[in-house]
């Protein structure tokens, strides 16, 4: 029982793709498309070469926000989506009929079609792989060269994520949508 979340010290990200590869290997993710489970939003510099404006340059890791109020769950007519004991938004695979309303409902564009299992897939914080095996780390977090990702239990005041959220300012993505997202971006 936990309330798992992830914080990103995202300014440290160098867009090296280690997290993406680790995720794909851990979770057996299909190759050949963008935004499968996790991805990095890239903003390039503007201006001309001798006078580049780098202020906007940004590598922002993102994935399913594990909302406490998930619009995908609301949207699913077959009740395939549920929140598990660790606060992770999960899927009853056998109930998913690929109706795809969840894809439309997600404001974070985190869902995609897994054409091997014929389900709508997304990040689940390695719930059925690492967490199931008793680990308390995700594949992306543990491998990250710059240690951008801080994963842990919000209900545990001593967890690293709770500590860091106490100490540092952060923002969340589209909080106005009322989704109560559990990804935190450290300023």
């Amino acid at each position: 029982m936990a309330r798992y979340a992830m914080a990103f010290d995202y300014k440290l990200c160098i867009n090296c793709k280690a997290c993406e590869v680790a995720c794909k290997e851990e979770n057996g993710i299909l190759l050949g498309a963008d935004k499968h489970r996790l991805w990095i939003n890239v903003k390039e510099p503007s201006g001309n070469f001798w006078d580049l404006d780098r202020d906007d340059v940004e590598y922002m890791p993102t994935q399913c926000n594990q909302c406490e109020n998930p619009p995908c769950l609301e949207a699913c007519p077959t009740k395939a989506i549920y929140i598990d004991d660790n606060g992770i938004v999960r899927l009853h695979e056998e109930l998913c009929d690929l109706i795809q309303l969840c894809i439309k409902a997600c404001p974070y564009d985190a869902r995609y079609i897994n054409s091997r299992e014929n389900i709508v897939d997304k990040c689940n914080f390695c719930a059925d792989t690492r967490l199931d095996r008793g680990l308390t780390t995700t594949a992306c977090q543990v491998t990250c060269p710059s240690k951008v990702r801080i994963f842990g239990d919000l209900d545990d005041p001593n967890s690293e994520i709770s500590q860091v959220l106490k100490k540092r300012d952060y923002f969340q993505l589209q909080p106005d949508k009322g989704t109560k997202p559990k990804l935190f971006y450290l300023k």
Binding site: K24, E25, E26, N27, G28, I29, L30, L31, G32, A33, K35, Q100, I103, K104, D109, R111, Y112, I113, S115, R116, T129
Partner: peptide, 20 residues
């Protein structure tokens, strides 16, 4: 299969190497 934006057809390879 249909990609996530629902309007484009994209070919995806099946990942045959090592499903976990």
């Amino acid at each position: 299969v249909y990609a996530s934006n629902l309007d484009a057809i994209t070919c995806l390879p099946t990942y045959l190497t090592q499903p976990t």
